[in-house]
Design a protein around this nucleic acid. Structure first.
Lengths: 153, 153
DNA sequence: CGGTGATGGTTGAACGTTCAACTAAAGCGG
DNA sequence: CCGCTTTAGTTGAACGTTCAACCATCACCG
């Protein structure tokens, strides 16, 4: 079956490349800052954040994977490292013998508390300082539409 | 010196998380599709694209690095792999004996031509089909503002 | 019940990226 | 022309991610 490719218009082309460049540059910058100042990649930071927001600072591995946007495998490896660093602990799940619960230790919480201000400052400087309030609102709507669309059939 | 952290407002918080989730999901999806259909990660695809657009399909390594948003080191490793696959070749630069020129081979061009339609279709489906024309325009302006801002002092 | 498929999570290998160290050549000031 | 700094690019090790295979347990249904 022959299917015609729906190529991008020049405008779309330009938007796509601009988005690619901008989001890559932003993420790279924040990742590098976090690595330099807190010794951890952004993915690990986000795992700690999600744990810190959970009731009792504990979450099932799969919920944590969903919340932090990691694959299960990625999370397994990551939690193994975070556990070695003493920032996270694992416990068996009482209601499901297959399950594991990850919990943020006090040391992990302290680490997060130390890293947060610098990182938030970075997000503000590199992202929000570049945008007008209208654009912030637009970016939110675009992002939400995108996520909505991506999580469909 | 004590510096007060400029925390994020709830609106900014929401925007930041939405953006994070959306861009990660989008990139992951496109990367996975490209890996499945063309056997290469998105970063390699982009290197091939930039080479294909250059005069005579050749670029200095550093120009290629800038154009494709890679670090020099990343590009070195990547080109080594692309060369092993027969898609790219290296040549000495005649005007600067330190320099290297990467050039896209016919095999590489063919590979790219085979991969492009599927990938473009993915970009259209996952990104542009989710947005209204106004939003596409907004996203472009936001992205350009961001890049502009990031490439400053 | 007992089988069958789905779910939760881990593992190791292959891969790609980063970081710091390094070589070599170019540019520049005296 | 000689040192000094800068630029171009590579290298290897450490790290993080992906992918596929895997084990264990659970849930459902005949």
């Amino acid at each position: 079956m022959v299917v015609m490719t729906r190529w991008l218009t020049p405008d779309e082309q330009r938007t796509w490349r601009a988005f690619l460049t901008a989001s890559r540059a932003l993420m790279d910058t924040l990742d590098r800052e976090l690595q330099r100042d807190a010794g951890m990649p952004h993915a690990y930071y986000e795992i700690l954040v999600r744990l810190s927001e959970a009731p009792e600072r504990r979450l099932r591995m799969s919920e944590l994977a969903d919340a932090s946007g990691s694959s299960r495998s990625r999370l397994s490896h990551a939690v193994a490292r975070l556990e070695a660093a003493g920032w996270v602990r694992r416990e068996d799940c009482p209601t499901d013998r297959r399950g594991q619960i990850a919990l943020l230790t006090d040391a992990g919480f302290a680490e997060l508390a130390a890293a947060a201000p610098g990182h938030v400052e970075g997000v503000r400087r590199h992202l929000f300082d570049a945008l007008r309030p209208t654009q912030v609102e637009q970016l939110r709507q675009i992002s939400e539409a995108l996520t909505e669309h991506l999580s469909r059939p």
